[in-house]
Amino acid sequence: PQNLTRTNFEHLERLSNRSRYVARSCKEIRDRYNEQEDGLYYLTTANGMVYQTFCDMTTAGGGWTLVASVHENSINGRCTVGDRWSSQQGNNLNLPDGDGNWSNRNTFGTAEGATSDDFKNPGYYDIKAEDMSVWHVPNNFPLDHWNLAAILRYHTNNRFLRLYGGNLFQLFKHYPVRYNIGSCSNRGPAVPIVYDHGDRETTRMFYGLKPRKEFEPGFITFRAINNERAAMAICSGVKPIAGCNTEHYCIGGGGYFYPDQCGDFPSFDYDSLGMGQGWS
């Protein structure tokens, strides 16, 4: 501390004050302690497990708790190491749930590292929430640049999570992310979104040329299923409406995708990477 400048010390002091808050979510910290600054905070689960995560205290009234990040470490991988949100056991018919991380209490990664690798904290299964927000942030950006760097940010505002147990852990218990759980028509809920950065048209343009005929932007959709009966967890920003080739625009999954599209961003690279040609 002796070599800290005065300003720096004040900042550190304020940060250390945050460690005194006891709350189960960023919303509680905002409501109970009137904290208005984005940044890292400590939270506690019902059983008293302490963890640190990022709080968005500014978007649409603030109080948003970061609970997970889905990061594609290798677009060429096929359910290989790093594909925690589908499977790390290869494309395996005998493992329909893959790693099962959408509906278990496993945690991994760190808040500061959430744009460099997958992240999941106890808030994912512990917090009872009403709405979700989603940020698409370019890989490897540091935490204090996330908001500005994000290519897409939106949130729901109709408290839909109340209908599905209050969090994604419970929602995906109702709608398992499992190969062969059903057909394309057995899709989970699609919820309208409010944009914080970007709009329906920018959302559309982020996905491939061919997928644009298959979805309607302006929604977040859970547990889509494609033609080959593979399940995906989240279609971010869109609602599938036709075609059922959801592996090109929905993320996460179970443990098997026919013929060979397994992975966290299942078949986003079908027509190789580039300027959105074909299905890519």
Binding site: C26, T65, A129, E130, D131, H136, F206, P211, S280
Partner: peptide
């Protein structure tokens, strides 16, 4: 999907 989408992490928040 576009390069931007493929090379961006998807951060999920609750409130």
């Amino acid at each position: 999907a576009s390069k931007e989408m493929t090379e961006a992490a998807v951060l999920l928040f609750y409130r």
